[in-house]
């Protein structure tokens, strides 16, 4: 084929359209590709049918009846419903121990004016909570002191104190349980978690007491007296619902 169009003779890039000048890359290349006519194997048809079945089956299983109001057709897709008390299906939100302690830290804002953010108290005036048997030991003694307050001399970590602690019975069972758990498990303290049910039991037993407790009254309670209620094991998630029973 020969071109007579002068515009095509020299467009740019200093070239002509002469055969000799056609660039090597063009001259050496193979023919334009074309499509062959090999028959399609039966195996390909079979594999295609399998794919169709897979796709259709998937749609059949998950379409939710093509209902415009059905947004959750897939069982097991949502996280499994959290185990809660009987009859309270879904009504109570269950908390993990981690969150329980974090909430306790918020309640502790009530305490830190005297006992200090780090739980060390004020030397000679307000007793520390760090390493104190009063908080890490018997939960019953701890709950009594919190509910009704304390007054008079008391020995903490071997040091005598003499002051007044207000009663906190206006806090809810849950808040008291959370702050007790927090104090028993922070700053190096370690003790069992306190549940809402345990505080409820303490309130029932000691709620009738009038006035603040004293050291002598607390010492009447055995030092290993734990509040009744199902315990919570940090390592065993199945016990965590007990926090809010």
């Amino acid at each position: 084929m020969s071109s007579k169009d002068p515009n095509l003779e020299k467009i740019d890039y200093e070239e002509t359209t002469s055969v000799v000048d056609v660039h090597g890359s063009v001259r050496r290349e193979k023919d334009e590709p074309r499509a062959g006519m090999e028959p399609v194997s039966h195996w390909v048809v079979f594999a295609g049918a399998l794919v169709l079945m897979l796709g259709a089956g998937y749609l059949g299983a998950h379409n939710g009846g093509f209902d415009m109001d059905n947004t959750y057709a897939v069982r097991g897709y949502q996280a499994a419903p959290r185990p809660v008390g009987e009859g309270a299906a879904g009504a109570v939100q269950q908390l993990s121990p981690e969150v329980w302690l974090a909430k306790g830290k918020k309640v502790y804002n009530n305490c830190q004016a005297c006992h200090n953010q780090a739980g060390v108290g004020v030397p000679g005036v307000f007793p520390p909570l760090v390493g104190s048997d009063w908080v890490t030991g018997s939960t019953e003694r701890f709950a009594m002191a919190l509910l009704k307050g304390l007054s008079g001399p008391i020995k903490v970590n071997g040091t005598p104190y003499n002051g007044v602690m207000p009663a906190w019975e206006s806090l809810s069972d849950k808040e008291i349980a959370q702050v007790m758990s927090y104090v028993r498990n922070t700053w190096g303290n370690s003790g069992s978690l306190v549940t809402e049910a345990m505080v409820a039991a303490a309130r029932e037993k000691h709620g009738g007491h009038v006035g603040a407790y004293t050291e002598a009254l607390l010492l009447e309670v055995p030092e290993d007296a734990m509040l009744p209620g199902e315990a919570v094991d940090l390592e065993n998630a199945e016990t965590w619902p007990n926090l809010q029973k």
Partner: peptide, 19 residues
């Protein structure tokens, strides 16, 4: 998938992608 759309929409998307 599992979002606030009618369930058949994501299911349709999945099925088409499989195809």
């Amino acid at each position: 998938m599992g979002g606030p759309l009618p369930a058949w929409m994501p299911a349709m998307g999945s099925a088409a992608t499989i195809l």
